[in-house]
Amino acid sequence: METLVRQQAHKIALSLNYDAEQEAVMVYGLLAIAQIGITLLIVFLLGLILGVALEGLTVCLVGSILRRSSGGAHARSVGFCTTFSIVFCLGAGLLAQWLSVPNHPLVLLSMMVIVFAASLYFIHRYVPVDSPNKPITSPAKIRRMRKGSFITLAAYGLVSACFFYFGLASAPLRSLGISLLIGLAWQTLTLTPIGAILLQKLNDLPKFARKESKP
């Protein structure tokens, strides 16, 4: 996907007489559009087939919106990232739907308390988590990112409380509430060193599989 985007951007840059920096900015934007568009579209379409379109999109959006301000561990290739995001969002959607069938308000409330308490702690401890490709060193930006993460978490808390209250009588709302918790838990995990190691190991899986299949 990245190669295709770079080729098309180069063609457009040549046609518009753009310099290398303008082309790089265009590639950066096009890559974001392609990645977001493809991931959301496939999660929605496969989600419709599996009956978890809303749950899958909820997991996807909850993680992505918090990630805007919190940062987090990164994959090494756009292909792995897109594939992993799609599989994870749909898997989490199916899990949320399965967990929402029995109506146990106490279990759900405990899950909410644990996930939100852990998120609050790890956001306070690690945010913003930057990467070598996009370092964050300015104190003003660090403050802004931390504030943004806490505001997003507070908003999730309100939405989650609504899902919990109205979900007492509705399995689909319970399912969306659990999707929110799974999305938040995953994004929180990517803030921690354990999450970074886990993502690195998952990154190496395709390489390992290729090596194993060679005679």
Binding site: Y28, A32, R67, V129, L199
Partner: peptide, 22 residues
């Protein structure tokens, strides 16, 4: 694409788990 790049640049990272060089 330039507008989206500027929007993404104001955040801590890309929306998903891949971050190309800024």
């Amino acid at each position: 694409s330039t507008l989206v790049a500027a929007l993404v640049a104001s955040s801590a990272c890309y929306l998903f788990i891949y971050q190309p060089e800024e």
